[in-house]
Amino acid sequence: MPSDASVCLVRPTLYAWTACLLNLAPGEYRPVERARACALVACRNWRVDGGDLVLVIAELLTNAFEHAGLVGEQRVLVRICWRRHLAELELEVVVPQTGFVLPEFGDVDPDAESGRGLVIVRNLVRTFSCEERTPGQQVFRAVLDAA
């Protein structure tokens, strides 16, 4: 279960259920694993398959912690929303960085040792985007089918 540093909240809103995983930092003990565990708990409560969601969370958080250049107490926010009426799961990963542009998705070099994470994400989701929401924050947003 998450520590106090990453709180898992599941609450209903008017049209959806939301699970928030807050304050994940790369220096904390296994933040990606904790986020995955919270997502699985939420999906079990909602009675939806969370397999693809957990993989997408792992890929996006790993990228954030390895490539965003987080320093000090900078944290990543993960928000998951289940929209029952649309049969979809929405994932947002908010990263304190700017200037990232999603790469063109072409063929992956079979000899490369990395670079497949976002390709995997792209193939598991309905839609995937990256945008600057506020100065200094970028939001990676993915929408997946909820079965």
Rank of each mutant, 00 (worst) to 15 (best):
L118C: 07
L21G: 01
G117M: 09
P31F: 06
C81R: 12
N45R: 06
Y29W: 11
V71I: 13
W46S: 03
R11F: 13
E92V: 03
V101D: 09
R30Y: 06
E104V: 12
P135Y: 04
V101K: 09
R122H: 06
A19H: 00
P135K: 11
A42W: 03
C38S: 13
T18C: 13
L70F: 11
W46P: 02
I57W: 03
L77G: 08
V78G: 01
C38R: 03
R83N: 05
L22N: 07
G136Q: 07
V10G: 06
V125Y: 02
V76N: 02
R34A: 15
P26K: 12
F100D: 03
Q74R: 06
D111W: 11
A147C: 07
A146P: 00
W17K: 04
V93W: 02
H85Q: 14
D52K: 09
A142H: 02
I120R: 02
L14G: 05
L144T: 04
V94M: 13
F105L: 15
R34Y: 13
S3D: 14
R30C: 10
P110A: 14
P2M: 09
C130T: 00
H85G: 05
P103K: 12
A5E: 13
S129Q: 07
R44S: 14
R84G: 08
G106Y: 15
C20M: 12
V56T: 10
F100S: 08
L40I: 10
V121K: 02
G117A: 15
W82P: 01
L55I: 15
H67K: 11
R75C: 14
T13G: 11
T18S: 14
Q97N: 11
D107S: 13
P12Q: 10
N123D: 15
A39K: 00
E132Y: 01
G51F: 09
C43M: 01
V56N: 08
V41H: 10
V101S: 10
L102H: 00
N23W: 05
C8F: 12
L89E: 05
C81F: 01
Q74M: 14
N45I: 12
L40W: 02
V76T: 02
E33K: 14
R34T: 15
C81M: 12
A19Y: 00
P26C: 14
V41M: 05
W82A: 09
V143D: 02
L70C: 10
L21H: 01
L53K: 00
W82V: 09
R79Q: 14
A25P: 00
